[in-house]
């Protein structure tokens, strides 16, 4: 941090520099993990739901980002990328009144009863 920006942030504002956790640029971190995976069907579906709901005007990428950022650093460390996206898409849809928490809960219980794997839990 240069002198001007160091002076801008009040000392003791936080244990870092006043930035939120997701504002990671320039922080210390370990080696870049180079492993990659091909996205699973359910991950692509989360992505597709985000794009479709956004195209249809229910929320924007800013709405997605707001929830992702508010979920905090622990969620970043413990959940996968599309798990976090799913949580954010769901939060936006509930806020928009697209479905209720109760409808979601009922549906998720119904799905749990269909089978033990993602393939078995499809309603087809």
């Amino acid at each position: 941090m240069d002198r001007v920006s160091a002076a801008f942030y009040p000392v003791g504002m936080s244990d870092t520099d006043g930035r939120r956790w997701h504002d990671m640029g320039g922080r210390d971190a370990g080696p870049v993990p180079q492993d990659e995976h091909d996205f699973a069907l359910w991950e692509k579906r989360v992505d597709a739901l985000m794009m479709l709901c956004s195209d249809k005007g229910f929320f924007t990428v800013d709405g997605l980002r707001r929830v992702l950022e508010d979920m905090g650093e622990e969620a970043f460390e413990t959940m996968t990328y599309y798990e976090r996206w799913m949580a954010a898409v769901n939060q936006n849809l509930i806020e928009q009144g697209v479905y209720s928490l109760e409808e979601l809960g009922t549906k998720m219980e119904e799905i749990a009863a269909r089978g033990d794997s993602y393939g078995e839990a499809q309603d087809v």
Partner: peptide, 27 residues
């Protein structure tokens, strides 16, 4: 493409996968 498959359709159904199915079906 030479990448490992991430645990997928045959693994135990996770909470977030259930939520994806639920959100999609409700929509």
């Amino acid at each position: 493409s030479g990448h490992p498959f991430r645990s997928d359709n045959d693994e135990a159904l996770t909470y977030w996968q259930r939520m994806e199915i639920a959100a999609r079906e409700l929509l």
